[in-house]
Computed example of a mutant assay.
Amino acid sequence: MKIAFIVDPLHRLKAYKDSSVAMMRAAVARGHEVFAIGRESLGARDGRIFASAVALQITHDDHDWHRAGPAEQYDLTAFDAILMRQDPPFDAEYVAATWLLERASRQGARVYNDPRAIRDHSEKVSIVEFPQHTPTTLVARHAGDIQAFIDELGDTILKPLDGMGGSGIFRVRADDPNRNAIIETLTAFGTRTIMAQQYLPAISEGDKRVLLIGGEVMPYSLARIPMAGETRGNLAAGGRGVAMPLTDAERAVAEALAPTLWARGLLIVGLDMIGGRLTEINVTSPTCMVEIAQQTGFDIAARVIEALEKQG
């Protein structure tokens, strides 16, 4: 198979922990050809969708992990599978890329995650479809609604809808003297919608990343455990990653969601859970595969390639 990865610039990928690199290595190990595409090269001409791609030779040296051939222009249907792994922000250019990739899919290209599903699944707001599995949650931008939510629950988490890596997340208690300023900042004085959730004390045990691959629930999570005195477990915010077998509660939620999400073309999904409650559904470029493999020996990246082979 010819497998193309739409990724951030190759020199920015940290091979020692990057899930996309792990998938590239798994693909090569199974005899497939690997290509890299920069999102900015996507375009359309006379109805056909094209991109500039480079063939990659992949090594196991994390400091010198690839060799890239010359860039060539390809019709996207020339690839057997295309993995959209561009990191957020989910801005207008990201949306434009999903439009082009959706058109390529209709022309026969196999794109994962499905471009329309990525566009339709806000990684924050998508959880409102599954309220039975989530903490008490509010999505709003009016200060009065958010203030009432904080007063009702007493201890909450506020976060922007377009953040990643723990950026812009605040824990706000009812007696917090800064709550007005935090709400004004996050909502830009009522012009931006945010998410508020019930604070879950189980965060001390980790913000768990549970991975779904092709509708199958992977048996291990990565618990992102916050530093002392920190609310956020995100690795980018200094959290410590510890691989753990799924709890019964985590597996029940994952098994409930997996068929629905896979039916929408979401090959790789990262569910975020705290205390067995669903807090986010990550579909743009879910990670944590490398840490789980290093700590347990369970190779989730290889499972992704196997799932692509089954689709072929």
Rank of each mutant, 00 (worst) to 15 (best):
P245G: 07
P259T: 01
N180F: 01
T296A: 03
A243C: 09
S221F: 02
D162K: 07
L246M: 09
L257R: 04
I194D: 05
G233T: 12
E216V: 14
P286R: 15
R173P: 03
F298C: 11
V172Y: 02
T296P: 09
G166S: 08
T284F: 07
A228H: 01
T279S: 13
I182N: 01
D176A: 12
G165T: 09
A249I: 09
C288G: 11
A196K: 05
E250P: 14
I183D: 01
E255I: 02
I225S: 06
I268F: 14
T231L: 13
E255S: 15
P219N: 02
L266N: 01
T185E: 05
D248T: 14
N282Y: 07
F189Y: 12
R209S: 04
N178L: 11
T193R: 09
L212Q: 05
I183C: 01
A243N: 08
T247G: 04
I225M: 04
A223E: 06
A174T: 10
M195Q: 13
A254L: 11
N282T: 11
T187Y: 10
A293Q: 14
T185Y: 11
M195P: 05
L161H: 09
R277A: 14
D155N: 13
I281V: 12
E152T: 14
E152W: 10
E291H: 07
L200M: 15
I182S: 05
A196E: 03
A258P: 10
G168K: 06
T185F: 13
T187V: 12
Q295D: 07
A252S: 11
D151R: 12
V283T: 15
P245M: 08
A254C: 13
L266D: 03
A237P: 13
